[in-house]
Design a protein around this nucleic acid. Structure first.
Lengths: 143, 143
DNA sequence: CATGTTCGTATCATTTTGATAGTGACTTGA
DNA sequence: TCAAGTCACTATCAAAATGATACGAACATG
């Protein structure tokens, strides 16, 4: 797909760095604590060529950071940056959509690790508290 | 990418139907009221071959619905279903991420169409009201 | 010193994408 | 009435991305 990184639409811009399924699944796994090449490879059953490329892109884009965890042999792991961590709510919300509309069979649930309660994610406007989607939204394009 | 529609992860399931940039941009445009082939084509500068395929997939997956708006000549438009409309919060939240982390230059803003106030989207837990990402999340896998 | 672990790269077939041109069924304007 | 325009596509084909598999490099372990 063509490069949308200079589009005026923030959705399009986001999609240029994380607009494919593998990247999002890598971020999902990283949010659950996976950091190493082989962890991702086994968890996702992804071809190593693709994984290499995706990890490199996510690192370039600033969602992951390469960190050396062993000097000999030289070994790097990939940890989430602040930008990467802040993408988690998008994934969780996408998961909530999937649960609602693609929810046949047994599905994983998101649980608050401390209270043990199931999380029920919704997007709201931080100012008014209104659920996103319940009121019409207009897009204001600059100049 | 391989088919993840039977994975137990709801994020993976969502990604099988909307896990690519074009589909999400089509949904974005559809949420803004676009319905016709040529509207999408011009808005997105997408090749007609791809657009045909994406619209067909989104229709099969139940996010869009084909509706005849002219008998002669036979013409169909694509309107969002409930599932398609409910995907908007995911996009808006992704846009908020893009604004924060890819926000150089002039960017479009989301405005409440009635009040005119800018929307500041956040994902929260509907039960506790806590922002998603501020507390650790555990994934509970079934059986 | 043989085997295993980890993080990859090389190679190559298959699949997907994307650009461009064309088509069918009309409508509209001169 | 006839040329031009609209709209929703399909056909064709080159280019790019994906994915499967094999292999490599740099060690650690037994």
């Amino acid at each position: 797909m063509k490069n949308l990184s200079d589009a005026s639409c923030p959705i399009a811009r986001s999609l240029t760095c994380v607009g494919d399924a593998w990247s999002m699944l890598i971020l999902r796994d990283a949010s659950q604590g996976l950091t190493r090449f082989d962890e991702f490879r086994k968890s996702l059953s992804i071809a190593p060529t693709i994984l290499t490329r995706r990890l490199a892109t996510l690192t370039e884009e600033g969602l992951l950071e390469k960190r050396r965890y062993s000097e000999r042999p030289p070994r790097d792991e990939y940890v989430l940056t602040a930008a990467g961590r802040d993408f988690l709510p998008v994934l969780i919300l996408m998961g909530a959509w999937g649960r609602q509309y693609r929810g046949e069979g047994r599905l994983a649930r998101y649980i608050d690790a401390e209270t043990g309660d199931e999380i029920e994610p919704v997007a709201v406007d931080a100012v008014t508290g209104a659920k996103i989607g319940t009121r019409p939204i207009r897009v204001a394009t600059p100049e």
